[in-house]
Design a protein around this nucleic acid. Structure first.
Lengths: 252, 252
DNA sequence: CGGAGTTTTGACTGGAATCAACTGCGGTGG
DNA sequence: CCACCGCAGTTGATTCCAGTCAAAACTCCG
């Protein structure tokens, strides 16, 4: 079903090489695709839908989730500008994706995407690296879900948000929290109430402060890191905290 | 010990081609590597070690895990014959791997492995498919850990074990449980006691029976599936239960 | 037969879920 | 401009599932 590699290379056009003569990046191959705008809360695709496209987030934040049985929802990740979604060898999607606020995306037909990957020795390792980073993030999330308590989960999440935000490392940066408490709860394996209580507790202890529902300020980053609880046995504090697809995505 | 398909390429030599002229498989490229034997409970590699090799399990079962802070362990997966481990773009391993019982493996230098992948248009999609299956399994595990109760977790796990085992679909097949209760607990985000109690409950209700610690028999598979709780909203019962790397690995 | 490690079982505790009431905010329209 | 509504979030009271602590039973060895 997928690209048998040696397809002719003509029809894969890259319209806007950022720097002439430079190698293509995964982001660059999306550049000639039109930007599609979605309102808040719209579905991009559903689990088990035929996987016809690969998407790249241009603007906004999306949630990735699965539903089981009686409607329980587990959010497996959030997508930020630059992130790819829908990459797989299956012919149906593994999960559903919805916009959180308004969002803009570009899409690529899956077959064309696979051809592009197969034909380009530059793109292949980039894609491979992304999958590896996603795998690393998934594993960290499994550790969080199986062994951390509510406070550790929330602190880990807040630090992750802060990372996604500011490459600006200034200590007391505002951190945007685009998702609702319910999204956070479904991501962290908790309930809204527990998320809310734990947030309040962090505020009361002066570790963070809130400015409306969707902005926080981290007041004591080191305390937050300690409370997140994931340093590892070998090398002490491990901000290592991977999670980042950033290394690979020069984003935007 | 299983049948490779063959290769007709120059330096990727496969010692025991079964059908001449067939495409190489990921399994086949390991065939000229020596088999290494490890006793029970040995470490293959540790998280953060320099990632020098890629391994393939030949025989036995391994556990993949991460340790956080004060020694809490989360097992992120189990490896069976045919499975690959250590594939990544990072130069350190993301997790630790240990043998459960005695095990045999083959190893491949990471750089040579990557070369082999890069050079072969047949191998690339195979590897890609494996990574996608791993990703699917990781997501199912996240759902399990964030939204299932103890019984659902255990039932899901037992069904997974049964799948890994018998391609033999005979209804009341013995299922080997090579890992200890502690391994199961650390995989399912529970404690030994809860695993034990839940097992006892399933036995008492006549859903499974045990024959020693490491063998069970599934008496009511349909009940077990119902208790596992993961059918999905869209298409009713979803034994879909992916988890399998089997599609890709002709194993044993 | 003995001893160590693993598993099972029991009694109790505790952290997060559940159930329920209330607050605060943003929008809408009188 | 303010009253009203609806929704998201907070806070409180209580419950309950799984964790903890402790002891007994079973297995696998030598």
């Amino acid at each position: 079903m997928y690209a048998p590699s040696n397809v002719a290379r003509q029809n894969i056009s890259v319209s806007k090489p950022v720097v002439a003569g430079e190698a293509p990046t995964l982001s660059s191959i999306f550049h000639d695709k039109p930007v599609e705008t979605f309102e808040a809360g719209r579905t991009i695709f559903c689990e088990d839908d035929a996987a016809k496209h690969v998407f790249q987030v241009v603007e906004g934040v999306l949630r990735v989730f699965k539903i089981i049985g009686d409607g329980r929802r587990a959010i497996t990740g959030f997508l930020y500008p630059g992130d790819l979604v829908g990459v797989s060898m299956r012919d149906t999607y593994l999960y559903s994706v919805e916009t959180i606020g308004q969002a803009k995306i570009r899409r690529f037909s899956r077959t064309a995407f696979q051809d592009a990957i197969n034909l380009s020795p530059e793109l292949r390792p980039q894609l491979f690296a992304i999958l590896c980073d996603e795998m690393a993030a998934a594993q960290d999330q499994m550790v969080l879900l199986s062994r951390k308590n509510a406070e550790e989960r929330l602190c880990t999440f807040l630090l992750w948000l802060a990372n996604r935000m500011g490459s600006a490392k200034d200590p007391d940066a505002k951190v945007k929290v685009p998702m609702t408490r319910l999204d956070m709860a479904d991501y962290l394996g908790l309930t809204i109430e527990t998320v809310s209580r734990t947030m309040s507790s962090l505020v009361n202890r002066g570790i963070i402060s809130t400015m409306g529902r969707h902005d926080i300020r981290i007041l004591k980053r080191d305390t937050l890191m300690r409370l997140a609880g994931d340093y590892n046995a070998h090398d002490g504090m491990d901000n290592g905290q991977t999670y980042s697809r950033q290394a690979v995505w020069p984003s935007a």
